[in-house]
Amino acid sequence: MNHNLFKNRSINKIPFKFNKIIKPLKILLTNNKAKAGFIILTGMIIFGILGQFFTPYNPNKYEFAGSMPPSYAHILGTTVYGQDVFSQLFYGAAPTLLVGFSVGIIGTFISIFVGISAGFASERLNSIVTGIINIFLIIPGVLLIMLFGSYFLGIHESLGYLPTILILVITGWAFGARTFRSITLSIAKRDFILSSMLIGESRLSIMFRQIIRAIFPVIISNFFFTAMYGTMGLTFVEYLGVGNLLQINWGTMLYWAINNEAYLTGLWWWILPPSFMISILMFSFILLNFGMDEIGNPSLRRFNRKKNKKGDINEFTEN
């Protein structure tokens, strides 16, 4: 028997290559939607980081006349309480982003773990885990947030960032888990998994090396979806008034604007900027989510048929 065959059992020891991380990022930039989303999101992150250091005024202080319309001194005017809206918007970007990203990362990790194990496990375990996933999918998230939040209010605590992230992860991981489970079910039937099993690779290693590699674009796409849920969820938590309303983020800004009826009194510069910033952030998440879908599923991509017109062979160039 050829001993080299055993020396080169590379399946169990795939060397870590920096390239493998960089390559998906490069692919990300080949897709127009993903590229647009990536640029917007990068801009948002830079905005958020700068906002921690360079706010024009102290976002917490009530030091100006209330309800001033936008002017040179105050680009976005002031609130009823006399805070500078732009400073709040600038300063509140980082916490908003951080909540969105944390929910995205933690939620995706949980859903990868649960989804892939369910898809690759025995039939009985699969049906149990599917049942659990369905329970979490069915229960409306707002109801759980409201119950938890009001219990916390009852003991004179409001949901800080950590409890908020926790409850959003609890209500938000199941969507991804469902996707991963069904994809894993189909991938587990393919030949390369069978061959790995025949060689003797452990199930754990197949699950978390082979399958994760195969569904990587879906994972990234799901991360952006969950991050979107996290951002939206933060605004829900704050809107319901169960969050810590002294913190400054785009959710609490909306809460104060709405509770002072900024939409009725014509203070549009108070309610619209945070709404549009949230909307732009979510928009970038959606773009990235769809871009990754197109990368994972080539039939959705758009192609140019220029060469075809000249009578050449069907040669597609990606646009």
Binding site: M228, M232, T235, Y239, L254, I258, Y263, I271, S275, I278, S279, I280, L281, M282, F283, F285, I286, L287, F290
Partner: peptide, 14 residues
């Protein structure tokens, strides 16, 4: 995409 990303309750207020 825009409709899916705009905060639902702000739209309601508007």
């Amino acid at each position: 995409m825009f409709m899916a990303s705009f905060p639902a309750f702000v739209l309601a207020f508007i």
